[in-house]
């Protein structure tokens, strides 16, 4: 049709609204929480909320990289579990080794990410299958290595990453270390997508890999890097989880699906080509606020999964519906 200027502002506005849909949902949910429990408005409780939400937000940022390039990473939860179990086994009660072990944990995470990326990029295995495979593989290895049950304790200096809270901080009162890790990771994720050319390459690859390849984009490298970032985020989240809840064989269970759901709630498009760091951040905060709300309402834990499923369907359905109406 003939181009007519007035049609575009509405479209741009629509785009802006989709980007921020996660923020809108988060604010709404948090308002309900605050209505039920007014002390959630205190900085201290909000900081605590951020601390507990940190692993999910970090995982979602990593997952977003993969989603932008048109894939899924189902192995994140398994990597987080592996990190928790490996930390307890390797540190083995000796706080001196903590930092070296953390280095080793990241190396393991990156190795899993590389395997995912190489399998997807070169063997052309659909990512949902490839990462399902690594998920089972990593889970199995972690369980076998730990002997099927959690053993050992994590030393305090390791657990502090997830647990430590500074008190008497000016203005905000308390500041959890995990909130700093969260901010740092989000800033890095933002930097990667917005301050380097990587973000636009990833969007192009997710939108149309064939066109990107013919335009000279290093498609394989772009995909592999996304899986590595995702695995690094899973390792980071695993370290925080170890701090929160100690050693457990199901520390990371189901986190990969929560991270995918979070990205979608925030407005990232499954199968690639659309989304920003804010989709991941606010999507994850919304999902975590929802879990908090369900707890406050006294709903049984098991219903969380059902509700999460419903939300996922509703979010994807809504974005499809929106797409169809626009065309």
């Amino acid at each position: 049709m003939t181009t007519v200027p007035q049609s575009s502002p509405s479209r741009r506005q629509a785009a802006r609204i989709t980007v921020n849909s996660g923020l809108v949902i988060f604010v709404a949910l948090y308002a309900v929480i605050a209505f039920l429990q007014p002390n959630y408005l205190e900085p201290g409780l909000f900081m605590n909320f951020l601390r507990r939400a940190a692993p999910l937000v970090i995982l979602s940022c990593g997952q977003l990289y993969v989603i932008l390039t048109g894939g899924f990473d189902l192995s994140m939860g398994a990597v987080a579990t592996l990190v928790v179990l490996a930390a307890s086994i390797l540190i083995n009660g000796d706080p001196e080794t903590t930092w070296a072990v953390i280095g080793a944990l990241y190396a393991m995470g990156i190795a899993v990410g590389l395997v995912n990326g190489l399998v997807v990029a070169f063997l052309k295995v659909p990512s949902i299958i490839a990462t399902l495979g690594t998920m089972l593989l990593v889970n199995g290895l972690a369980l076998a290595w730990s002997g099927g049950a959690a053993r050992g304790d994590l030393p305090d200096n390791f657990r502090n990453l997830g647990r430590l809270v500074w008190r008497n901080v000016p203005v905000i009162g308390t500041l959890p270390l995990a909130a700093l890790v969260l901010t740092g990771f989000v800033a890095l994720a933002w930097f990667g997508l917005n301050a380097t050319v990587y973000g636009k390459r990833a969007l192009a690859v997710g939108d149309n890999p064939r066109a990107a390849e013919l335009a000279g984009t290093p498609v394989a490298a772009t995909r592999i890097l996304a899986f590595v970032v995702s695995a690094v985020s899973a390792a980071t989240a695993g370290i925080l989880l170890g701090g929160f809840s100690g050693v457990s064989v199901n520390a990371g269970e189901g986190l990969e699906l929560q991270a995918i759901a979070a990205c979608v709630i925030g407005g990232a498009q499954l199968l690639g080509g659309r989304g920003s760091v804010w989709s991941a951040v606010f999507g994850a905060l919304s999902l975590f606020a929802l879990f908090t709300l369900l707890n406050l309402l006294g709903l049984p834990q098991a219903l969380r999964d059902s509700i999460q499923g419903l939300i996922l369907i509703a979010a994807v359905g809504a974005s499809m519906w929106g797409n169809r109406r626009r065309t």
Partner: peptide
């Protein structure tokens, strides 16, 4: 449509695709 364009990206992003792809990864966009 199938081989030339990333249809959901902007006109500008499509025109910039090759420049962005051939420059160093850490180039500021």
């Amino acid at each position: 449509k199938r081989e030339g364009l990333a249809l959901r990206q902007s006109v500008r992003d499509n025109a910039l695709l090759t420049l962005r792809s051939m420059t160093g990864l850490f180039t500021r966009p």
